[in-house]
């Protein structure tokens, strides 16, 4: 078909966590511009399997931009060249015939490579487990207006709750800092009534776990916000810093 393209891929191959990895060149032919980036990988993997080679391991699940599992650092950017999307939402029309595309896994001490392009993001789960929840059952949805929430607070909580925990913020940050993720998970609860009782201990516990996992610190470059598929705002980081300061200076629990 006209408009289809031939591409060179440079993909990070690594047998397991201990093995030394390297970039390996692959050719794919007759790729439709309407394919998603992951479908292009499916084509490559079928090609590899037919030849009896090991297919490339990569994370994927919902393929509609809501699960957050697809990772891939594409041509130097998490989720590739487009703004506000995940890798499954990236289409081959963003590339040209004859392009060379470099695909690497997320790089961070706290995200060890499992195999090829798949990394272990359970550090995020442990940060959530440290306090990113409300301890008591809050029951069914309240009747309207029994629990008043200012519109601005509801909006901020809702925007923060859009975080899908994909780790693009860590992948984009030159310090591999998880501040955007942690601040989103702190702020989705910090602005709602149900989140208040544990607000102070939550922020302290989650930041402590974040530090323990070996993420870097935030130098406010803004790369995370620019690369976030859900456009989580840097405002969350400032708000978390405020809460963290308050929790440490004013909380009577010491």
């Amino acid at each position: 078909m006209s408009g289809n393209m031939n591409l060179t891929l440079k993909i990070w191959r690594q047998k397991n966590n201990k093995a030394k990895g390297e970039l390996v060149n692959y050719k794919v032919a007759d790729i439709s511009p309407d394919m998603s980036f992951l479908e292009m990988f499916d084509v490559l993997n079928e090609q590899l399997i037919t030849k009896g080679d090991e297919p490339v391991a990569f994370d994927h699940d919902c393929r509609e931009g809501i699960c957050g599992i697809c990772s891939m650092h594409i041509n130097g950017r998490p989720h590739g060249p487009k703004h506000g999307i995940t890798t499954c939402q990236l289409h081959m029309r963003s590339f040209k015939d004859g392009d060379t595309i470099v695909v690497e896994p997320w790089r961070a001490q706290a995200f060890p490579v499992i195999k090829d392009l798949a990394v272990d993001r359970s550090a995020f789960d442990r940060i959530i487990a440290a306090g990113g929840y409300v301890s008591v059952n809050t029951g069914n949805a309240q009747d309207g207006n029994t629990l008043p929430v200012p519109k601005t607070d509801a909006d901020m909580a809702f925007a923060a709750a859009a975080c899908i925990g994909c780790g693009a913020c860590v992948a984009a940050c030159k310090n591999a800092s998880a501040m955007l993720f942690v601040s989103a998970k702190v702020n989705q609860l910090a602005h709602l009534p149900q989140g208040q009782p544990e607000r102070m201990e939550r922020v302290r516990a989650m930041v402590a776990q974040m530090d323990k996992e070996g993420f870097g610190s935030c130098t406010n470059t803004g790369a995370c916000e620019a690369e976030c598929p859900k456009e989580i705002s840097l405002v969350n980081i400032a708000a978390m810093n405020r809460d963290y300061l308050r929790a440490n200076l004013l909380d009577s629990e010491g």
């Binding site: 790089r107 001490q109 070996g214």
Partner: peptide
């Protein structure tokens, strides 16, 4: 130095100018 340690293996390709100054 701490932040360097947070990414022991660096990327072969990065496009920092696309997302920050």
């Amino acid at each position: 130095f701490e932040n360097k340690k947070a990414r022991p293996v660096s990327y072969a390709m990065t496009n920092g100018n696309a997302n920050s100054k």
